[in-house]
């Protein structure tokens, strides 16, 4: 391809590194990799993989925006932006009617309110607590000896919701072990865990408010059980994402890259 103007968004999260390449406003390629210990290399590897996926070369990239916790080690980026702003831009790109985002990533979760142009108007994040994060669900998956992907579908097979009172990772794990020892069905405990998280996330929305359309982003958004629990607890309908919700931050970063380049900075 000659004279391609491509823009990249690199979202180096605590668990996953996501990269999206935009060409003419369309997603031309992407990658999702497990984040390793070398932050800079993670981002670069993500970029190379996404470029390969798009059939493009590094020289085709006009502007790169890095986001996520790894953005502070991204010398390859032209600009860094927080993932809060990026999720708003990403959700707005995929679904312009979005006014509220629930973002659940590897190590934090956020409630974000945005206007009709995709600008953030308010936000709240979890604080010093792993509830509602990918890491929390990973620990729980380990208790049930299943993969992370299986947790959601398993919860849909529940016959009743068991109360799981704690959202502290360590205490919730021991509570779960006790429930299993008591002979409770794993699916009923799993749905209970999802409800406990949804309740915790509900607390953040009482601070910023919730308005339709509601978009669910981040790695945890792939979990159908979590999505269902959020709809039940928050009494909202969550929009169907057109793309992998884990990519939303990277999409937003790529959109910002494209806009920044057009504005000449």
């Amino acid at each position: 391809m000659a004279n391609v103007s491509a823009f990249a968004g690199v979202d180096v999260g605590s668990l996953g590194t996501k990269t999206v390449i935009l060409v003419d406003g369309e997603i031309a390629g992407y990658s999702i990799l497990r984040t390793g210990i070398n932050t800079e290399e993670n981002g670069l590897h993500g970029l190379e993989t996404a470029l390969e996926n798009a059939g493009l070369k590094r020289e085709d990239l006009k502007y790169i925006v890095a986001t996520g916790y790894g953005r502070i080690s991204a010398p390859y980026a032209d600009k860094t932006v927080t993932e809060i702003t990026c999720h708003a831009k990403g959700a707005h790109y995929l679904h312009p009617q979005t006014r509220t985002i629930i973002d659940m990533g590897g190590q934090d979760c956020k409630a974000i309110r945005l206007d009709e142009d995709g600008n953030v108007t308010d936000f709240a994040m979890n604080d010093k607590c792993a509830a509602g994060t990918g890491r929390f669900l990973e620990v729980m998956a380990n208790v049930f000896k299943v993969s992370l992907d299986e947790l959601g579908p398993l919860s849909l097979r529940a016959t009743e919701v068991l109360p799981v009172s704690s959202t502290c990772t360590v205490f919730a794990e021991s509570e779960t072990v006790s429930l299993l020892a008591r002979g409770e069905r794993p699916e009923n405990i799993i749905i209970g865990i999802h409800h406990a998280i949804a309740n915790r996330v509900g607390g953040m929305f009482s601070r910023v408010g919730i308005e339709s359309d509601v978009f669910f982003s981040g790695g945890v958004a792939k979990n159908i059980g979590m999505r269902k629990a959020l709809e039940d607890v928050l009494k909202v309908k969550i929009v169907e994402p057109k793309k992998d919700p884990q990519l939303v931050g990277a999409i937003g970063a790529a959109v910002i890259a494209q806009n920044s380049w057009k504005r000449g900075r």
Partner: peptide
């Protein structure tokens, strides 16, 4: 984490 919130607020 704290800085992230502050930075997002500045961006907002």
């Amino acid at each position: 984490q704290l800085q992230n919130r502050v930075n997002a607020f500045v961006e907002m």
